[in-house]
Amino acid sequence: MSAEAGNAKVRITEGGYGTRFLVKLALTVGLGLSLVFGALYLLFSRPLEGGYGSAYAALQNLTQPWLLLPIVGLPVLVYALVVCIVTVVLCVYAIHKVAGPLYRMDRVVDNFISGEPIRAVFFRDGDQAAILADVFNAFVARLRDDRKACQELMVRAESGLDRDPERAVAEMAKAAGEIARHISKYR
């Protein structure tokens, strides 16, 4: 797959990843707003006691910001805090599916840089951007294949060193040339 041609077909996240997150977020917001409605129902449902005059005075009182604002503001504040906490959890979990694989690949890169043997990168169920692991593993595999091919050339060239050193040295020089050509694609 060439990089440019492949871009159109490459799926970074699996189908439904975004939808699932948005559905969970919508449910959270919906539930939160339902709670606001319930709280406002409870707070506004106290019957206006007394006669017409008292009811009139109570209603007028209710229009005052010092009374109406806490009645409206408190449930909305609680809603905002609760929904924010749930949203943080949802976001952390959803982004973890992308950040986690990057984190694990970062550790593999650490191994690569320190010269330790590199393990193939494995992703867990539900991890997104799995293609990144595939192409990284493919890159490392290609390097290894080239290394092995070069090492085989060296071993083959060296094999006659005991029998006919002069001829073997010529074979080794020839093998070195082949190695140079083999890795010439790297630039």
């Binding site: 797959m1 060439s2 990089a3 440019e4 492949g6 871009n7 490459v10 970074i12 992308v98 951007a129 293609i131 990144l132 192409v135 990284f136 493919a138 890159f139 290609r142 694609k185 790297y186 630039r187």
Partner: peptide, 17 residues
């Protein structure tokens, strides 16, 4: 991530720079 994928594909083809 697409850019990372593209670069890794190019790297496998020999472009390391």
């Amino acid at each position: 991530i697409l850019r990372l994928v593209e670069i890794l594909l190019k790297s496998a083809e020999g472009d390391l720079s």
